[in-house]
Structures are given as C-alpha cells and as structure tokens.
Design a protein around this nucleic acid. Sequence first.
DNA 1: CGTCCACGTCTAC
DNA 2: TAGACCTGGACGG
Length: 273
Amino acid sequence: MPELVEVKIMSEYINQVSEGKTFINVRKSDVSKSKTNLKGSWSVGFNLTAQSRGKELKLSLSWKPECFKDHLEPTRDLICNMGMSGNWSFTETDKVPKHAHLMFDTNDGWTLSLVDVRRFARWQWSNGWSSNRGPDPVEEWTAFIGNILSNLDTKEFKKPIYEVLMNQEYFNGIGNYLRAEILHRIDENPFLPAKEYLIKAPHLFLYCKQVPMEVYGLGGGQLKDWSNPFVIDIKAFVEWQKCYGKKDMATIIDKNKRKFWYNKKYELSLKNE
DNA sequence: CGTCCACGTCTAC
DNA sequence: TAGACCTGGACGG
C-alpha cells in the first residue's frame, strides 16, 4: 500500500489516536528481526507525534514534562519505512492484530502497532530524514523541483522517465501506482530520457503534487489488508485509477522487477529505443 | 494442491 | 543486477 499519500494518512492517523495519550513502553514482536534497540530509558511517560516525508514516516517520542530527567534526551525520532504492507493500528492492548511488529503501549491499556504482513517495514533511531531521499513532492514542492533541476545534467536524468520516477532520491514517495497514473495523465512518451521528458512536459512537477493530492482526497489508495480509517469511499480509488492494473494497458518489467503500466500507444516508442 | 503476484527497499556476488 | 526478504490472496489444474 504505502506510497506518499498513504504514509501521509498514516502519520495523521498516528497523531489523531496518540493525542493526549501517555505511552509507557516500546516493544517488537518475537518474530521481528529488527536490530534497532528499543530498550533503555524509553520506558516511562512519553508522547508520540508523527510526520511523513515521501515514503518515510518519522515518529517523535518526547517525554512528558513530569517524566523528564536531566540526563535524558528531550526527544528521540524513529524513522520508519513501511515496506510493501506496513500500516498502523490503535487498539486495546489485548486486541493487538496479528502481524503487529512494533508496538507502543499507553498507560491506559491501548497500543499503537505497526502491522506488517510481509515484514518488509524497517525502523531506526535517527536525528532526521534519510539523506538519500529527496524532498516531499506535496509538502516541499519547491525544494522537490529544485533538487531535480540542480541535478538535471547528471547521468540519472539520461535514463527514461519511467525509471527515474521511482528513484527516491528525486521522487521520494512516488511508487508503482503513482508512477503509472502520473505518466498516464501527462500522456507523453514515458520512454524518453528524463531530462528530455521534463523539457517537453515540465508539468510533471505539478502532477507529482496534484495526483497524490487527488488520492489524498479519496482517503488514500486501497490495500487488501489495510483498514484505512480515513477512507471515504471503498470503490473510489479503483475507479480513480486510469492506468495501473487496468487490463487495456501495456506493461513492461523494469530494472527493479516492478511492473510499469502505460498506454499501449507508446509500445512502438519502446521498440524504437 | 501448485504457481504467480503484490502500493519496497537492501546487500551481496 | 540478480536475489533476498515475507505472507497470503487469486487463480489454475
């Protein structure tokens, strides 16, 4: 599920359910192979807030004033990647869902859990966002454009746009369905080198913001096993999609073994490459 | 039963 | 640039 929009919605969900709660414990499932050390002094009285940037989610743990001691850091950030199936759930502690792998318990019997069937999600303590991921196309639109423009003459932008659009160093948050839908909307040859494509279709920048915002308006994309608490209409997302997963579209497998969905009219452009 | 597929990174040859 | 990492749903025989 999680691309930019869904991670953004998750961060809002975490903020909503954590508001006014006091957390007293952090733990992981027995089956989790995460090596991030959750032990230590983070065991009494902290608040949780979340923020997203592209596909990254940052959880900030900050001490309740009455629990704060001088020798402690006032806040600590856990940077999370949600993998293919990660999502968040807030339940009573004895009703934590199957496949919960990172859990935060409150002092009144509730638990915030990172639920992740495939266990590709990762988390680690960090002072900030990962340096190898670019600005958020929605929340930091100007910086997002600047980051690309100042690197337009690098090797990377000689690669076809459908590949570069998945590079998180420049398009943090764009994943497989957003790639397909954005390029389909623009309706320009997606096999063009990225720089050339951007010169022909500079509105790609705008679409990298607008298309996610439309999905945000729908409550986010739908994943089979994600009960998205913000969903407005279950069918809306499937109907909104014009390209990704549609049987009248063409597909190729990209370098990363991801299926790229695109309009059949560009099949010929591919052969000419 | 079995095989294929999934909204993403990682790291090892 | 293959694989590795994972579970489970869809679909075929």
